[in-house]
Amino acid sequence: MGKRIEVSGLTKKYGSHLAVDDLTLSIEKGEIFGLLGPNGAGKSTTILMLLGLTEVDSGSVKVCGIDATRSPLDVKSKVGYLPEDVGFYNDYSGLQNLMYIARLNNIPIKQARKSALDILEKVGLLDAKDKKVESYSRGMRQRLGLADVLIKEPEVIILDEPTLGLDPEGVRKFLQLIVRLSRKQGITVLFSSHHLHQIQQVCDRVGIFVKGKLLAEGKISDLAEQLFTKNTFTIEVGVTSDQTNLNPPLEEVTKKIKQIKSVANVTLNNNCFLIESKHDISDELSKLIVNLGYGLSYLTKKEYGLDDIYHQYFQEEK
């Protein structure tokens, strides 16, 4: 059904500080989009503007086809937002907290109760529903937060650093839950985090957001190409040579590898080549080595993950 979130030319200033600088972004229906950036990059500000919670200096924001600055109420009834470090009324039980939000969304009380119990079961809090929230653990609170977001049956979910402070197991379960729900119900998810691995695990598409600017945007594999102009691929090859004197020496092999198109650099280190190239040449490489009479003990393609992209960027910054 087309785009759920459309942002163009979005700018927000705090005094002279440019928090969000001419941001353009669009997210399709059913997509899980990761907004990746360090602290203070303007992720939360962007999210606030998506919900119409803060004023936009210039540019336009459309969520579900509705202008967020003009009619924030309509947007907020379609978007579930889990704020960073969400809080609950501690002296109310989990169910009561959930019911309150349901009532604020104008869900009639009977139906609210039914769907609240449903959702609590989905997020695995049904046993703890009558306990006061102050006795909840961090993970339970976060799951209650997710329940809170889901109860209004949103079309879009916006999660601001939802995994902050969870243990690895908790993070894994939480992410699985989000992916499952999103896939099942076709909910669009905008997921902001500064954790590369979590984003890498769940997101279809990623935007890297630094100092108010979207540096790159796309699938993780495409991102590498956008950010690294050359030598995206690094291949590590281990060779064995049983019969001595039969093969050309390893230095010879190095030269031959260098002759392959698009290879930029080859380093030899104790029967092990490290080859940097622009394209994937593992095919040709293995053929070459075998033809030369060497044994191929291993060949690993080192693809760039977000980690490298991230570090690469910050190295450039410095």
């Binding site: 919670l53 109420l73 309509d74 907020k76 969400v86 609950f88 009324y89 939000i101 969304n105 937060g145």
Partner: peptide, 14 residues
Amino acid sequence: NKGTLSRVMAQPIP
């Protein structure tokens, strides 16, 4: 301080 304000604000109420 409890963080409930932003949660309530995310609901469709003026």
